[in-house]
Design a protein around this nucleic acid. Sequence first.
DNA 1: CGGAGTGGATAGTTCTGCTATCCGCTAAGG
DNA 2: CCTTAGCGGATAGCAGAACTATCCACTCCG
Lengths: 221, 221
Amino acid sequence: MRIGELSRQSGVPIPTIKYYLRERLLAPGAATAANQADYGDEHLRRLKLIRALIDVGGVSVAGAREVIDALSRDADDPMSQLGQAQIAISPRHHPDRSTQEWAETRDRVLQLINDRGWAIHPESPAVDQVADALAALTSLHVTELLDNLDRYADAAATLAALDIEATLNRPAATDRLELVVLGTVLGEALFAALRMLAHQHESYQQLTRGKTRSQPPPGRP
Amino acid sequence: MRIGELSRQSGVPIPTIKYYLRERLLAPGAATAANQADYGDEHLRRLKLIRALIDVGGVSVAGAREVIDALSRDADDPMSQLGQAQIAISPRHHPDRSTQEWAETRDRVLQLINDRGWAIHPESPAVDQVADALAALTSLHVTELLDNLDRYADAAATLAALDIEATLNRPAATDRLELVVLGTVLGEALFAALRMLAHQHESYQQLTRGKTRSQPPPGRP
DNA sequence: CGGAGTGGATAGTTCTGCTATCCGCTAAGG
DNA sequence: CCTTAGCGGATAGCAGAACTATCCACTCCG
């Protein structure tokens, strides 16, 4: 298959495919002549993966490349690969982390990890991201979520166990890791959207509680 | 308090505050003279809210403005406000939604909502976002997450119930709505990071299962 | 009274994620 | 064999987002 066909099947415009090739997100096709190359199904799948990471997962182009690089490295150390992928999908911009308050919040996060007996590398970006969220909530005097932190962690553990368990059917370690990463990125997008729906439903329930009869659904989405 | 003090207390540079004023994210201070204005604590809090939405929640500047606008509108129709806020934090770019496959996936989402008895406005962007994620997973032939969709929805419902329940202590409807929105945006960032930690722990558990003795934590985050 | 700081306006910068154009070449139909 | 659509590779251009810098007249404080 040549580039036009790849574009047709994937829905990605040719100039964009060329751009991804330049950015090394997509491996070059097998050259059949000086200016002809052949792309296979693995290129098509990779292209779909790239678009899913970018469009659905909200990962940047550079982040997508790092995720793919991490996945295609030799799987001698899967934990390291997972770590690299997690770093790749972590946001580039973050709030100020130099305050005393933030450091204390981070310590509380490490404490939570310790209490749960979680095996976490202390330099994982996720630790800092938890601290960012908690610190922001604290500075806004929103303590409700902090009170429910343990329940949030419970739910996270439940989903993670579900995700990892689902990988057991995959024989190859490479496939398993890819599934974990997809679970992280696309699973997060999926869960966030489901949570918005649940928020909508729960809010509606709460608003109409005590009313004698049920009302029609809300007027605006 | 004048702009310099506001900048010092919030950690936001003066030119950036001016930019937010221009973009109408922040209300102008009370003018005391031709070129002097006075800012209060509400400006400081608003500024923290803006930075939390942008830096922690990953919302765009335009999205943050819409969220704030939705929150500060008259609370005669909280469901509409929530809907507007959800629209504001939804990503601008999304995958192609014109395929037959996508339409079928979306129908499955509506079916799920119906099965659960959720009261959801069918035009809610979250419906489409769930469909985006499911369609991407399907096209990548990753069916594991689809099989666990109900559990995902369970977890989402649990967290949402927790979030809404937590708002009951707030007397004012405005405060309650703000809490729901913060729960959506910052709670999502918080949960995503917790989930990454849990993924790390579960992966490590899985890798060392069956080994005779426990190993040191992974070498790279 | 003088210099740091202020509010408001306008212009410039950097980064990201594409698009557009050009060029010499290949491959397939007539 | 000849045309012509399409290809690959390279370079340049573009639009949006989120700031950042400069300027200016003015005001407040010591």
